[in-house]
Design a binder for these strands. Sequence first.
RNA 1: GCCCCCAUCGACUAGCGGUCCAGGUCGCGGCCCUUUCAAGGCCGUAGCGCGGGUUCGAAUCCCGCUGGGGGCACCA
Length: 416
Amino acid sequence: MSVRVRMAPSPTGLLHIGGVRTFLFNWLFARKHGGQNLLRIENTDTSREVAEAVDHIQTSLLWLGIDWDDELTFQLDRIDDCRRVAEQLVAEGKAYEDEGAIRFRMPNEGVTAWDDVVRGRVEVQNETIEDLVLVRSDGRPTYNFASPMEDVWDGITHVIRGDDHISNTPKQINLIRAVAGDIPIYAHVPSIFGQDGKKLSKRHGAVGVGEFRSAGYLPEALVNFLALLGWAPDGETTIMSRDELVERFTLERVSASPAQFDYAKLDWMNGMYIRALPPDEFAHRLILWLGENGYDWDAELVRKAAPLVQEKVARLDEFPDYARFLFEDVEASVDGGAEVVAAARDALADLEPFTAEAIEAALRDVVERLGLKPRQAFQPIRVAVTGSTVSPGLFESIELLGRETTLRRLSSASHS
RNA sequence: GCCCCCAUCGACUAGCGGUCCAGGUCGCGGCCCUUUCAAGGCCGUAGCGCGGGUUCGAAUCCCGCUGGGGGCACCA
């Protein structure tokens, strides 16, 4: 039997990173087995907000490269089918009316059990399960009715979802039995905590996919990182391509214990991916990111500046701080070092050619003449030219800045 | 209160009875490189929650405790 799984988000404003990790596991599992991965929106109304959220969900997933098969479906579209099933269950005596709602009769004795792929066998005493409301008195089916019914109708073979659904599972199993559907295989993946061990929330930083995107994370790095949260192929490998992830992923190796989201490690991994990018590709990503985030910096200049910062940044949003001096005026006040700054100005005034190599030779010459240590000499020049004590390589920076602007900043700083 | 789940360095994890005085990665500390910041290289730091069993032998199996988490809705 071919594998069929589903991603079933609620249409809320932001796609939570914890949910995305669960969806990623679905996707990896489906792709690994050549199966299908469906996208099913668990909506209960059709407001404009929902439409926007659905849009946002799709955009976010596609940005991460998590795609789906077939058309996406909406829970709301199947409420009539749900109602019919509920009526049938009432007719069969398996459900009953209760103050206008329809309730499903749970068995009163025995146990309901399943072999969870990540947790092993889970058993629940039936006497602890209350009769489940299938249809509310206003006629709308409940989640715990609609969701398992959709799993049956969609031919879902494996339900891979968050562990907050564990206690729903025995209810859903009993319901599926009652309608003579096939019980899917369940895999309950652990939740993700913030760095204080509490539930991941806003105050931990980014939690929505969009926030990670605008923070300058690369989707492939985020996917790699997320995959390793609660899953590991062997305990040694950390950097894995998407293909390798697909090839090596197994549900059996998903951990049962919750993981904390470590932003520092994500940053490290993102930096690894950035440095591994071909320079052209890095520049391309930068240009796109800058455009998405309100910078109208000259693309050609960005392309030239990109190689100077590629080794230095962990996230794309660090680029502006390094390269701003190339695009905007800077405050160049040097305190101390006026002498070397002035000498640098003179050395560069007529330098030909105005290349990093020649600039370095000229400046090193100045440093030697003045009897300074490189460290002491270059820092005032750096501050004068870039307006910051932290910058890309000085000589390359000066070449890119150009003679005219460089001289102006050097002059201005040496007179202050 | 009742039910269910979880428990290895600060973090992510490997480990599925002996090969583990516990391995990898991030972080952190030190050193090297160096025009700043990074990157890179090298070295180091740090852990099996507690108590009982089972066994010749336990991080690995069982029970209890403690600590976390989730659920007990006409929410999803």
